[in-house]
Write a protein that binds this DNA or RNA. Structure first.
Length: 293
DNA sequence: AAGTTTATCAACCGCCTCCGT
DNA sequence: GACGGAGGCGGTTGATAAACT
């Protein structure tokens, strides 16, 4: 037996919203607040699915939504955030006040994405050849696009069904990042493609072993690392390295080294304990800000 | 001016996670 | 731990506008 639909489809309006429906929804939310989307259409007297109401409110009716074209600065930020986060539109949208994930997604698909896709040889692009001052800001953006294209072509696609500990170290001498993948429940995916990071199993004399993700470009780490989704979102949101305590089998708490993304200096004295929930709450740590600077 | 193609973006769909029980 | 409801998310669709022939 399949899952029941979010609402009965019969007798519901579909397609574009009318001004009257918009007003009904806005008035209802002003009085009763957001939430309880499933009940909302009945209580508000709308012949719409609850999900549809939520989407309409979040993407169009919400007062703080910014209207108008995406600015150059916003586009630049979107490109850089996409490089870091991939198609995680909601995370990207959180960094652009007033912009919705849907709007950013649409903008990407109709503008930036196409420009990246339609660029077989970036250096032959006329805008990149033009070095005049008036085009400098465009060139910078194009450069970012080229960079994005380069990163997209070598996105990490590690496929691990679950990962219980990640420890990020940076070897300052070799400027090389090691990511100890730790205890893998399933065999990790190893991509030995050209120029891609690789998961390496390191065995010690005492018989223990660990998986290491070996690569040269630390900025790729957070892109498309398809591990346990919950864990990944925690890392993305917290912006810190997370080392759950596996010795006592309690995965609900973790040891967090440092409070920012300075991977180069993990001193054990900096260690503090947070639960993933606490980490989420403390999130927004300055990680993305630091990376974007 | 009419027909066709392309671009845009609001809305939908289905899957997923979270959270309460 | 299992289950189910609620909400969130990303991919896709389709209606409409704009550009082009």
């Amino acid at each position: 037996m399949g899952r029941s639909p979010c609402c009965a489809k019969e007798g519901l309006n579909r397609g574009a919203w009318t001004a009257r429906e918009d007003k009904t929804l806005t008035d209802y939310i002003k009085i009763n607040g957001e939430g309880r989307w499933r009940d909302l259409p009945i209580k508000a007297g709308l012949k719409r699915c609850g999900k549809s109401c939520r989407l309409r409110w979040l993407n169009y009716l919400k007062p703080d939504i910014k209207r108008g074209n995406i600015t150059d600065d916003e586009e630049d930020l979107i490109i850089r955030l996409h490089k870091l986060l991939g198609n995680r539109w909601s995370l990207i949208a959180k960094r652009l006040p007033g912009r919705t994930d849907n709007e950013i997604k649409n903008y990407w698909n109709t503008n930036i994405g196409k420009r990246i896709q339609g660029r077989p040889n970036s250096m032959s692009h006329p805008k990149l050849i033009n070095q005049s001052d008036e085009h400098n800001h465009i060139d910078a953006k194009e450069s970012a696009l080229v960079d994005e294209q380069r990163h997209a072509s070598c996105a990490i696609r590690t496929k691990a069904s679950r990962c219980t500990k990640v420890f990020i170290l940076q070897d300052p001498q070799k400027n090389k990042v090691h990511k100890d993948i730790g205890t893998m429940i399933d065999e990790p995916f190893t991509d030995q493609g050209k120029g891609r990071p690789e998961l390496v199993r390191e065995e010690s004399l005492d018989g223990s072993s660990k998986w290491t993700l070996d690569e040269h470009d630390s900025s790729d780490f957070l892109i498309d690392v398809d591990m346990d989704e919950k864990f990944l979102s925690e890392v993305l949101e917290a912006g810190i390295s997370l080392l759950p305590n596996i010795d006592n089998g309690n995965e609900s708490r973790g040891e967090v080294f440092g409070s920012d993304m300075d991977h180069s200096s993990h001193q054990s004295s900096d260690k503090c304990i947070y639960s993933p929930k606490e980490i989420r709450d403390k999130s927004d740590a300055n990680w993305l800000d630091n990376l974007l600077e």
